[in-house]
Design a protein around this nucleic acid. Sequence first.
DNA 1: TATATATATTGCAATATTACGATATTGTTT
DNA 2: AAACAATATCGTAATATTGCAATATATATA
Lengths: 110, 110
Amino acid sequence: MGATKTDHFTDNQNELAVLAKALGHPARIAIMEYLLKVDTCICGDIVNELPLSQPTVSQHLKELKSAGLIKGSIDGNSICYCINEPGLEKIKGFFEHISAHLEKKRNECC
Amino acid sequence: MGATKTDHFTDNQNELAVLAKALGHPARIAIMEYLLKVDTCICGDIVNELPLSQPTVSQHLKELKSAGLIKGSIDGNSICYCINEPGLEKIKGFFEHISAHLEKKRNECC
DNA sequence: TATATATATTGCAATATTACGATATTGTTT
DNA sequence: AAACAATATCGTAATATTGCAATATATATA
C-alpha cells in the first residue's frame, strides 16, 4: 500500500490528477506565477525568486515540466522556462467543464 | 526535511496549492466527476462507484471536504455530498488568470 | 431493544514527497 | 586549458500520503 492505484482509473482521470498534483505545492504555484509575471520566458533567475535551495527548485521545475505545465529550452549556459499552454488548457478545461455544469443545475439541490 | 515550507509562501499560494493537491489523486478526480454526473447531490452510493475500500473512499472525501471542494450534509443514515462552488471557483480563477495573461503575450517568446 | 446499514476513525505497513548537501554536468569566459 | 557559472543528479533524512482491516459511531428499521 501507499502507492496510488492508477490502474483502476481512466487515463483522463490520471492525467488530470497528475496536472493537479504538480500544482499541489506552493513553490510550484509560485513558479507558475513568476513565469506569468515576467514578460518573456525567463532564463535563469528562478532560484533567486524562491526561498528554497537550488537543488530543491530544480526538482520542482522538473516536476512541473514532466507534468506538462512548463517547458524549458537550453539557452547557452542557462535554461529558458515557459508555461506550456496545452497542459494548462487541459486542466483549465476540467474546471470550466465543472463550472458550466453547476451553472445549469444551480438550485436543484443543497 | 520532508515537510512543505508553507511559511515561506503567501496565503494565496498556499490556498491554491491545497486546492490543487486535493485534486492530485485520480480517485478524487473521479469523485468530483461523479458528483457532477448525477443530477442532484448524491447520498450514499459513492463507495460503490469507486474501486477502493470504504475507509479509503471516506478518507478521500474527507480531504476534498477539508480543502473546500465539496460539502456534505447528514441526511438520516447517509450523507449527501455536493460540490462546493466557492472552492471550485477559486482554483478555476487561477487558471483563467493565467490563460488570460498568456493570451495577451502570445508569440512574444518561445 | 436488537439488528442492520452507512459512514468515520484508528492503527499500521508500503510507498511517495520534500528538502538539501555534495557532486556531476554543461556551457562560457578568460 | 583553467576557472567560472548555471543547472541537474545522487544520496539520504524527515515527513506525508495511500490503502485497508478492524473497529467505532450513528441512524434506521424490524
